[in-house]
């Protein structure tokens, strides 16, 4: 996973989004996502249509029964894995699960920090 450093970014760049849900910031902090490794470092740029699709909205109508919305899915995967592991997950283990999920959703594997370019 690369961290992008595009200079002169601004107009026309797809907006940034947190991959690790902000609502669970504290949960992630307890597992090592603090300071320079806070969840704010793990954002990606995504076009609006893609971003909407991943959150279950936009034009795509899913089978009623499928819970694919990203935030719900990733927290479920992480928390259930933690219960089954019988101990708190390490930061790397969290990132491993997140990376696997990003590939399955075809989310660009290039992290960029929330602040700055």
């Amino acid at each position: 996973m690369r961290v992008t450093g595009r200079a002169g970014a601004g107009m026309g760049e797809p907006p940034k989004h947190h991959v690790l849900p902000k609502e669970f910031r504290e949960w992630f902090e307890k597992r090592g996502f603090t300071g320079e490794m806070s969840i704010d470092q793990f954002c990606v740029r995504m076009e609006r249509a893609s971003h909407e699709a991943i959150h279950g909205g936009g034009n795509w109508k899913l089978g009623r029964k499928w819970p694919g919305e990203w935030n719900r899915m990733i927290m479920k995967a992480l928390r259930d894995a933690e219960v089954d592991a019988g101990r708190m997950l390490t930061r790397n283990e969290v990132l491993g699960i997140v990376a696997k999920s990003m590939k399955r959703y075809d989310i660009p594997m290039t992290f960029t920090p929330w602040r700055g370019r």
Partner: peptide
């Protein structure tokens, strides 16, 4: 144990709500 937990966690996250409880029991 972590490998197994990761597999079961990812599977559980892919399971529809209707089958959540049963999936938990399988795990």
């Amino acid at each position: 144990r972590f490998k197994v937990a990761k597999a079961l966690g990812c599977w559980s996250a892919d399971t529809p709500e209707s089958h959540e409880e049963r999936a938990r029991q399988v795990g």
